[in-house]
């Protein structure tokens, strides 16, 4: 036995391999135990009916998935994720691009503006949620108070309590917390755009929009796909800010897949069904991330 081990280590190539594995092994062990194994465990749970407590997890096959397709709450939650992804991507990217172009050639106070715009990015989504819940407070909140102070009482709404306004209102809070990130990344991308091209376009008489469309946006292609990929994944996973502001309400108006899953599995104790929801979420995320990574790999080479 010891001989074979000694022989193994005497072989230089095998010893190199062993060193390589030794570097990777600690991370691999953690990863397998706390990410990979639970993922397969979720798949298993999604095939059972279980309340989280009974000693027996009743195996029901694909029953939970059959129910999923007929579950209007799932579809409404997914549609909110979808809205979140669209509005939550387009708005901060547009703002970031706009500010990036304004600041591109450097203005006095550049550092100040960058510092300010990025400020909310360091806040936790929980803090962003609490701040905006106060902003939207119907009675004393600054938004309604301002509207009343300038005589626009009709516009003073119960923002988070209105099923039509609640989701856009939370998304606005999310944009507030996030556009600075897009701005900084876009600024970094703008540094790589060839100034001579812009100057040449100026000579050719291209107007601002044409320059934006034909030179700046193509030059930022890589950066924009990166940000989009990021916001996409954030949009699928969003939980904290919604749980803090509305807990999915009013009605179902702001439930997303993560809040619905949490509610089902942990508050109502439908662990099997909650696991099926979690798998749906995993699949959505997997597909989107796959697109993200393939774009990234392609863009890099």
């Amino acid at each position: 036995m010891t001989d074979s081990i000694r022989q193994f280590f005497a072989d230089r190539k095998l010893r190199d391999y062993a060193t390589g594995y030794a570097f990777v092994l600690p991370a691999l062990v953690m990863y397998v135990i706390f990410v990979v194994y639970p993922f397969f465990y979720t798949i298993y749970l999604s095939l059972t009916k279980w309340d989280g407590a009974k000693p027996v997890k009743e195996f029901v096959g694909f029953l939970n998935y059959e129910k999923l397709f007929a579950d209007p709450r799932l579809w409404s939650a997914l549609s909110h994720n979808f809205i979140w992804i669209i509005l939550g991507t387009v708005t901060p990217v547009a703002i970031g691009l706009f500010l990036g172009v304004l600041l591109w050639r450097g203005v006095r106070g550049m550092v100040f503006f960058r510092t300010v715009y990025f400020l909310p990015v360091v806040l936790a989504p929980v803090a962003v949620g609490i701040i905006w819940k106060w902003m939207y407070n119907p009675q004393f909140g600054p938004i309604n108070s301002t509207l009343r102070a300038v005589g626009l009482d009709v516009l003073a709404k119960g923002w988070l309590g209105d099923p039509y306004l609640a989701l856009p209102a939370i998304i606005l809070a999310g944009v507030w917390g996030y556009f600075g990130f897009c701005f900084v990344v876009i600024m970094a991308g703008l540094q790589n755009i060839d100034m001579e091209q812009i100057d040449a376009a100026l000579v050719d008489g291209a107007n601002g929009l044409e320059r934006l469309w034909y030179i700046i946006i193509p030059g930022l292609r890589h950066v924009l796909t990166m940000i989009t990929a990021f916001t996409l994944i954030l949009g699928v996973n969003v939980f904290d800010i919604i749980w803090i502001t509305t807990r999915g309400g009013p009605g179902r108006a702001t439930h997303v897949i993560a809040t619905y899953t949490y509610n089902t599995a942990f508050r109502e104790s439908y662990v099997g069904y909650g696991s099926a929801l979690a798998i749906v979420m995993g699949l959505v995320s997997l597909v989107l991330s796959f697109i993200f990574i393939s774009i990234r790999e392609r863009g890099g080479d």
Binding site: N137, Q139, L160
Partner: peptide, 11 residues
């Protein structure tokens, strides 16, 4: 109240 669903319980 039209804004009831946005108003906290104690308010």
């Amino acid at each position: 109240d039209e804004q009831g669903s946005a108003t906290s319980f104690l308010d």
